[in-house]
């Protein structure tokens, strides 16, 4: 028996293999993980490391090849295919990099439709959607189409949509990648507020190092496995997280800077003072 609060999400030895034979790709290899209520977990890792694959399996969008996923006592990995849509609808809130709003629907309807899918009447669904959007500061944007909203507003609509059926767990894949740093930060603070005020677990997958501030825990995924956190640094030019060992580096005023590529390094060296404030982040 555990003494702590029961975990919202418990993952054991999860693996995913795409394809078979010689072309098979082992995208996720024996990953285990627990997320508690109200906890914000950030999974970082280079492109192609299996982050999206892992998140898809956790969100019941993709069947694992092996392993066990337990959500609020429900063993997802054992459920029949037919039950999964309902689980996704009621137990998860999804937030995507490119927002994925329905382009023909207003902000209000984009949120309301998901409540309706879960069985709420149209009126009640709209009322709940309206309340949520107002809470997220979008009261003046209810009847705007997605194309009329800014990126940050779109992501807030998407977050309202993710919350409308009161799920226990929010899953977000690169939620800030399409936002400028101001709106990215705003989005992250919003997610943090939701986690802390409403006790929702939040699992974020990203390679944006700026998110680390708001996370309770940061995990590093590489080649489909969780690894020791390496020594990471933020590219002062493009903001990407880079591993010091593999990155291109440069010295300026006695400090080391790390870059995702030569292009960024050259841009930095052309005028280091422009990037001077962005110091390399150290991680052990």
């Amino acid at each position: 028996m555990r003494t702590e609060r029961a975990a919202t999400l418990r993952v054991q030895n999860l693996s995913k293999r795409y394809g078979s034979g010689e072309t098979a790709v082992q995208a996720v290899k024996g990953v285990s993980l627990e997320v508690s209520p109200g906890e914000i977990v950030l999974i970082m890792g280079p492109s192609g490391s299996g982050k999206t694959t892992l998140l898809s399996m956790l969100g019941a969008l993709l069947r694992p090849t092996e392993g066990r996923i337990e959500l609020d006592g429900l063993v997802l990995s054992e459920l029949s295919e037919g039950r999964l849509p309902d689980i996704r609808l009621r137990h998860f809130g999804f937030v995507f990099q490119d927002f994925n709003l329905l382009s023909a629907l207003s902000a209000l309807d984009n949120v309301a439709i998901v409540a309706e899918l879960a069985g709420l009447g149209r009126k009640a669904a709209r009322a709940r959607a309206r309340a949520l959007l107002e809470e997220l500061g979008l009261g003046a944007r209810l009847h705007f189409l997605p194309e009329q909203l800014s990126g940050g507003e779109k992501q807030r609509v998407a977050i309202a949509r993710a919350l409308v059926n009161e799920p226990a767990l929010l899953l977000a894949d690169e939620p800030t990648a399409n936002l400028d740093s101001h709106h990215g930060h705003e989005t992250m603070r919003l997610l943090r507020r939701i986690a802390k005020e409403q006790g929702k677990s939040v699992l974020i997958v990203s390679h944006d190092a700026r998110i680390q501030d708001i996370a309770d825990r940061v995990l590093w995924l590489e080649d489909g496995e969780f690894k020791e956190m390496r020594s990471l640094a933020t590219d002062p030019v493009c903001g990407m997280t880079v591993e010091r060992e593999k990155a291109v580096s440069a010295q300026w005023e006695g400090k080391s800077y790390y870059f995702c590529c030569r292009g960024c390094r050259e841009e930095f060296l052309a005028g280091p003072q422009r990037f001077g404030k962005a110091t390399a982040r150290e991680r052990e």
Partner: peptide, 14 residues
Amino acid sequence: RQREYGVLKALGAR
């Protein structure tokens, strides 16, 4: 709108 149908499906539409 293929992508949007996919989104609805991911969100839990049957």
